[in-house]
Write a protein that binds this DNA or RNA. Structure first.
Length: 212
DNA sequence: GGTCGGATCATCT
DNA sequence: GATGATCCGACCG
């Protein structure tokens, strides 16, 4: 049995974040370098109403893909602009959703960094609301959102949301907070083969919902 | 607990 | 023709 905070960090976030009319993060918020946005997004809440089904989760793990100078990015300089990465070249605050390994979807937030394509990958959420719907979509009760492809499945996110502005239905991100005692930790990104040592993965230490 | 291989295909070489 | 910002079930210990 792991130690848990007396008051779950999610409780505060859940109340404000999923409440009707909660303010979405502004485009100014995203118009910053991906490293900063990736760190600050920890604690924010993703709210989905895809298929009319409300689900929401608190962001506990992210990765930054800061620009063309990053060889691991889908918008790396050697690749340039393509149909797949078009959204990364769009305005800050829209979604970049792509298929990976032929069968999963991953959700990114496009950020600004001096007009260069950049994004933040959402790697794990702490489930807040709609857990039953998440479990139904995932086909299991556990591990609902602790992985980039798991969380898209749980929220009903797919390629149809590529380029979608994240301040409007059916997929929004609203502000949240770090709970007292929650510490941001940095480390290498998962699964990448290039720039393995760049410390661009961010997560909330001690939160039980990170991907690993 | 851990490791291994299959699924499955758009994208890029 | 090879690769990949992953997940899952099978198998081993």
């Amino acid at each position: 049995m792991k130690d848990r905070p007396a008051v779950a960090p999610a409780e505060h976030a859940a109340r404000g974040a999923t409440a009707r009319g909660a303010a979405a993060l502004s485009s100014d918020y995203y118009d910053r370098p991906a490293e900063l946005v990736a760190r600050d997004l920890l604690g924010a809440v993703v709210v989905s109403t895809v298929d009319g089904i409300p689900t929401a989760g608190r962001i506990v793990e992210t990765e930054a893909y800061p620009g063309p100078h990053d060889p691991a990015s889908h918008a790396a300089a050697r690749i340039g602009r393509t149909a797949r990465n078009a959204a990364m070249h769009g305005p800050p605050g829209i979604a970049y959703v792509y298929r990976i390994y032929g069968l999963h979807w991953c959700l990114n937030v496009v950020t600004g960094t001096e007009r260069r394509p950049a994004a933040v990958l959402l790697r794990a959420l702490e489930p807040l609301t709609g857990l039953e719907a998440m479990a139904r979509r995932r086909g299991r009760e556990r591990d609902l959102t602790n992985g980039p492809a798991r969380l898209t499945r749980a929220l009903g996110v797919d390629g149809g949301l590529d380029g979608h502005g994240l301040s409007s239905e059916p997929l929004r991100i609203v502000s949240g907070s770090h709970a007292p005692g929650e510490e941001v930790v940095t480390g290498p990104r998962i699964g990448v083969t290039r720039a393995r040592d760049w410390p661009l993965r961010f997560w909330l230490a001690g939160n039980g919902h990170v991907s690993r």
